[in-house]
């Protein structure tokens, strides 16, 4: 094997014909290395840090507003969790997530996932990644995994900041559930964990949509705007009573479906259906992204 002169001292790759198992371990390690590079790139990017900071700031603002002006009147018919926040700071997490999951979280996810492939294409770095060779399916998988990691980071940022703000601004203690019973504080925190995972799954479904758009353009802004536009349109469709038959098929309809954790025992029916819808969206749009990305000429 001929090598570039002067580089004989450093080795690349593994030895000759490794065992299948060793090869699988090596492939997994290389995959994780690329994911690490991807996550590092995403979480170090000033734009993404700013989005996470804004997401973390909103629960604090909601908390301060509730502390200053008091909770909504029960007769207002506002979201029931809001009324509970002043009594127990843990409810701030539920309140903040139910508000942010409507638009701000989806926007942040759309920015990262919509940028994932189109941004690389726009920079021209996509051709070098593929010539490395990153492998198209492998790169797409890493891109999606990275988007999911960002979803989790964004939702966790909201949850942690609202947990902190809630505990600092309001009394915290055993939680009185919507169904009337009371659960210990630690149990409540665990249930917040369940909500975080559920909301992350909902955002991961949106990330699959954004990723599919991202494979169709070289302009990241186009993929991001299409995703956000779609979210808004679908949400508008979701509130038109005449179209209520379509509601169960709309992604946005299920994002908020985590009220069940505040019942005793935990009502998982709605969340289970939501997860099925999310899985369906991930499967469909993931396939579209894959078909598009693996069959496309990279001319930029």
């Amino acid at each position: 094997m001929s090598t570039v002169s002067g580089q004989e001292t450093v080795s690349i790759g593994t030895g000759a014909a490794p065992l299948p198992r060793a090869r699988a371990v090596g492939a997994l390690r290389a995959w994780l290395r690329l994911l690490g590079s991807e996550v590092g790139l995403t979480l170090r990017r000033p734009r993404n840090i700013a989005m996470l900071a804004v997401l973390a700031l909103v629960p604090v603002l909601i908390g301060v507003a509730l502390r200053t002006f008091g909770g909504p009147d029960e007769t207002d018919g506002g979201p029931s969790v809001f009324g509970q926040v002043t009594g127990n700071g843990l409810f701030l997490t539920f309140a903040a997530l139910s508000i942010l999951v409507q638009l701000l979280l989806p926007v942040a996810v759309a920015v990262v996932a919509g940028d994932s492939v189109a941004g690389e294409a726009g920079l021209g770095t996509l051709r070098y990644l593929l010539a490395a060779p990153a492998g198209r399916t492998r790169l797409l998988g890493v891109k999606y995994a990275n988007a999911v990691v960002f979803c989790l980071a964004a939702v966790a940022a909201v949850a942690l900041s609202s947990l902190l703000a809630g505990v600092l601004l309001f009394p915290a203690g055993p939680i009185t559930l919507l169904s009337g019973g009371t659960i210990p504080l630690l149990d409540g925190v665990l249930r917040i964990g369940v909500v975080v995972l559920y909301v992350t799954a909902g955002m991961a479904a949106l990330a699959a949509v954004a990723l599919a758009f991202s494979t169709m353009t070289e302009a990241a802004v186009g993929a991001i705007a299409s995703t956000v536009g779609l979210v808004v349109v679908v949400q508008v469709l979701g509130v038109i009573p005449q179209l209520s038959v379509f509601q169960p098929y709309l992604l946005t309809h299920w994002w908020n479906g985590f009220d069940g954790v505040l019942r005793d025992p935990m009502a998982t029916g709605e969340m289970g259906q939501g997860l099925l819808v999310f899985a369906a969206y991930i499967a469909v749009f993931g396939s579209i992204a894959w078909a598009r990305f693996t069959g496309k000429d990279i001319t930029c």
């Binding site: 690349i12 590079s37 790139l41 920079l123 021209g124 770095t125 490395a132 990153a134």
Partner: peptide, 30 residues
């Protein structure tokens, strides 16, 4: 291929590390 393409907000070294990470045969230790 068709001129350089890198991440403008990364250093030269970090850019090379990025491309190296994309190569499944590259040994991260070296």
């Amino acid at each position: 291929v068709e001129g350089p393409a890198f991440y403008p907000y990364l250093s030269g070294e970090a850019n090379l590390r990025r491309y190296d990470a994309a190569d499944p045969a590259a040994d991260p230790r070296t």
